[in-house]
């Protein structure tokens, strides 16, 4: 992986602030093949996955201003869009999402929070890569919709507690900014 999380966040900012197409192309080249693969592993055909991956990437552009780098990595945010597209297109079900909490046009997240979340995301990426193959596969299959939730416990042994604390802190700051 040549690019780091910080580069992806910079691409998102370039899209939001300057409608920067080059930044979008960089995100597209990295994430579109992953989104398509994720959808195919979730049971969709090549052509449906292609169609949905394009829609997901278009949403990344259209909703770029909703991305909050103090609460999610770019990959995490794109995962949620892809997952919702899968529920909608493959399971033919509406997906209720929590009320959107976004920074208004004036306020923006604290840079220290953004950097802390990037570090936590990279730690989590590494922790997943370091898992025994069997355990990693189980987690992957759960996210591909290949396992019922009763078959896998939410206990993964991964460092999710620290990332949760970071997100909680960022939420408190966001609530404060929202007044």
């Amino acid at each position: 992986m040549s690019k780091q999380e910080a580069d992806w966040v910079a691409c998102m900012q370039a899209i939001t602030l300057h409608q920067d197409q080059d930044a979008f192309v960089a995100l597209f080249r990295h994430f579109a093949p992953r989104v398509k693969s994720f959808l195919m592993k979730s049971g969709s055909s090549d052509s449906l996955a292609e169609e949905c991956a394009q829609e997901v990437m278009a949403t990344v552009w259209n909703k770029a201003d909703r991305f909050d780098p103090s609460r999610a990595s770019v990959a995490t945010w794109i995962f949620t869009i892809a997952r919702n597209r899968r529920i909608d297109a493959i399971r033919k079900q509406r997906r209720p999402e929590p009320e959107d909490l976004t920074w208004g046009p004036e306020a923006e997240p604290d840079q220290a929070d953004v950097m802390a979340l990037q570090q936590e995301s990279e730690k989590l990426n590494k922790a997943i890569a370091d898992l025994p193959a069997k355990q990693r596969e189980l987690i992957e299959r759960a996210y591909f919709g290949d396992l019922s939730h009763s078959e896998i416990a939410a206990e993964t042994g991964l460092p999710l507690g620290t990332i949760k604390s970071r997100i909680r802190l960022a939420l408190d700051r966001l609530r404060h900014a929202m007044g």
Partner: peptide, 10 residues
């Protein structure tokens, strides 16, 4: 975030 990490590794 775990889903994001899975997407990154696929």
């Amino acid at each position: 975030a775990l889903g994001g990490a899975v997407l990154e590794h696929v």
